[in-house]
Design a protein around this nucleic acid. Structure first.
Lengths: 190, 190, 190, 190
DNA sequence: GATGAATGAGGCTTCATTCAT
DNA sequence: AATGAATGAAGCCTCATTCAT
């Protein structure tokens, strides 16, 4: 296995195990085992378990944004852009259940809170979705609400349903996804 | 302290500590300390830590339903009942941040998944909210969607915003709560 | 074994093992084994290995001072008091080789340096020996030297010889001890 | 870098790091880093960490003896020779704090004990200082004492004070060094 | 019933040493 | 000869659970 591969393998193992059993159900030794390396080896690539988790999350977030931005109708009507983003997220998550589970676990942990704080306080670059909401409000197409409310109205249902789908409590097909996303649009539009 | 009191004290301590520090940040010894009992004593009332957590959750869920049902306009219009339930939940959670945090932690853990499975598969009695959605669909006031989608469109944003409020990423006051709940209504109504 | 006994047993085990193998040759598990308790038990009595070491040292230092002060000819001539202290230390150390080894290891470690710094900077109460040197200088019986030099001229040889004796590189009997102590007196006296 | 240079570099790095952080604060990887070689490379020159430490010590001891012998008034009066040796050692150690720290660490470790045993049991060649003491006794200039007592009376204070100086608990200047060495002379002389 | 000291498995991390390149 | 990634044993510490008092 080559150098980069090993790093990848460790992150992949962390992704899988955390997705399946949570952070506390995923000891470093188990991650190492799944990755096919010795326990000590992980520490050549990641300073600590915390760092491993955070970097794994970082990669996932990047992938996610890439997937959302793909074919994004920049400059198109707000509604179209909103539907595009939501459907993109749905499709990404449903196609990547492990990634979804990991991201969820991350957000529901001290890591995630700190991360969210940074984002809301604007320490991270303003993303495509924030822009969308701000522009929508300016154009009086969206309701006049604080940003976190838009995020809640959009990602709250989305995340909820992806989880239910992955846990097989519901089956989401394209038509249902579209109808759900349109319901979210009803929530945010004026 | 009497028998029942001791049991209560332990659950209260578990609630507080888990709300503050999560399951893994709340050792049994610490729960015992907070409850004012010896560590071993907890095991006279709860078979294991898992059981303690689950029973504590059970109590919280009951309280929650009581609070939602209070002054519930049974027989009134769907919209009014929907708004009543949502506002009730918002107000309950914002007034009980520890309870909220505990419930959230619970739902994002293996316990929570099993619990949710039982509920969706109908192993538990049909609750007031399910009734509301089913009736609304019958009357063609609500959209035609699977139940889990209604839950997602409603509780997704609600939980999201309560968390943000408790973490002080946003300040929810009554007007904003109302506008948010009305946005959720827009999502579910036809 | 009773509560106090267990604490004692752990310190005793630490004393013995550190004396024999040094700090790094004395893992907590080995100390526990020697003390006849489980590894985790040590942590009921001592917050960490560091604390265990420091408290063990503290006890030894107390014993040492008790032994030095016993029959101390307070108010007697400087020379007599000096010889008394030195002989007391020699006899204590030779009778307690494990204690000696531990104290030595402690002094030659980061712990010991911090401890020494506190003592020299006067953070600890002025001890009987410091008094002796200061009084001796005032009375012009001792040479005019900084305190650390007196300590070096006295404890340097003393510690060196105790080590050699314990390692059986030399055999110290009472006459030799007396002659050695008198040689030290020659070094400090005017 | 040539073969010899690399070996030197490793020993130099070991010296520095052990002097600064002790044996256990100086992992092989860190020594390698400081020396500018790969970790594995060290093992081409030294069988193990133990061997590296011992050989490094050996070099230092040689240097030390060279420094002591420089301008040594061979054949001169005992007192002059004694003062020369002691002052030489003081000056060497104060000018080479890392070397001093390393030597000290070495002596206070299992390595050091074995080393000392060999020296005292005469397995090593008789050194200049031993000669000095033996000659001084013969000439009845020095007290009649076993050799280890002379060593203790001389090196005990010396090492003690060098440490205090390096740790900045005292400042040794030439006059104070001279007065201290003379005090040691008072201890050993008849 | 209540206590809380004791247990020991298990978690994270370090580091001397090896070995394929 | 040199490299440095990989190994895995071993260290410190935590904590759910038990049991003698």
């Amino acid at each position: 296995m080559e150098r980069g591969d090993k790093r990848e393998a460790v992150m992949r193992a962390a992704l899988e195990l955390v997705g399946e059993h949570g952070f506390h159900g995923s000891p470093m030794a188990m991650i190492a085992g799944r990755a096919g390396v010795a326990a000590g080896t992980i520490y050549r690539y990641f300073e600590s378990k915390d760092v491993l988790i955070r970097e794994t999350y970082g990669c996932l977030e990047e992938q996610l944004m890439v997937s959302v931005k793909a074919e994004y109708p920049q400059g198109g009507p707000i509604r179209e852009r909103y539907l595009h983003v939501c459907q993109g997220l749905f499709n990404y998550f449903l196609a990547s259940p492990l990634e979804f589970r990991f991201i969820e676990q991350f957000h529901n942990s001290p890591y995630g809170v700190a991360c969210r704080r940074d984002k809301i306080l604007g320490k991270k670059e303003k993303d495509i979705i924030t822009e969308l909401f701000e522009e929508g409000m300016e154009q009086q197409i969206l309701k006049e609400l604080p940003l976190p409310v838009f995020f809640a109205l959009t990602f709250g249902p989305l995340v909820n349903l992806c989880r239910d789908h992955i846990l097989q409590f519901i089956v989401l097909d394209q038509p249902l996804i579209i109808r759900t996303v349109e319901a979210c649009w009803d929530a945010v539009k004026r």
